[in-house]
Amino acid sequence: MKIKNKTLLLVAVAILFSCFATPVRAQEITPTVSDDEVNRVAQQLYCPVCENTPLDVCPTKACAQWRELIREKIALGWSDQQIKRYFAEQYGGQVLAVPPLQGLNWIVYVLPPLVVIGGIYLAITIVKRSRKSVIPEETDLVPSPPPASETVMEQIEKDLQKEERS
């Protein structure tokens, strides 16, 4: 019974202290870290609860609390990377705006350049193959005359005539 009373007393004291401690800490931290500094980090993170909503613009109370958490971490001298790592450990990898460079995530970084390289290769191949099958006289790369004004007009007139025929 005595032990139980002591425990209750300790819990009550702890609660009392925490009540005092929290506002003091908030008062110390709040003025030193601006909203802009908080948002700079928050916009690199996504709300862990509402899907596809960046943390800096999420209107929920939960996100407001997470922004306050960022404020505390910045005040403690944490870097952006440390804060992002902390959030990823706490709430999972989906809070990061881009997947971290690990495991299967490499695909996201490697595939786009490969797509571009593949596209360039395809373009060159198609044009080269197409040129090869042209009759030699026509493939002569003597530059055709520039589309001077007259030729532009001719082209337009041709288009118009074609339009009329079709």
């Binding site: 996504y46 999972g92 809070v95 990061l96 996201v108 595939l111």
Partner: peptide, 25 residues
């Protein structure tokens, strides 16, 4: 690129169980 960005989170969850976000960046 758009298709990759859209389906990658599904593939990641399917094959590794990890949820990821592919954001504007």
């Amino acid at each position: 690129i758009c298709l990759l960005g859209v389906i990658f989170p599904i593939l990641s969850e399917l094959f590794t169980g990890q949820q990821v976000t592919v954001g504007p960046q």
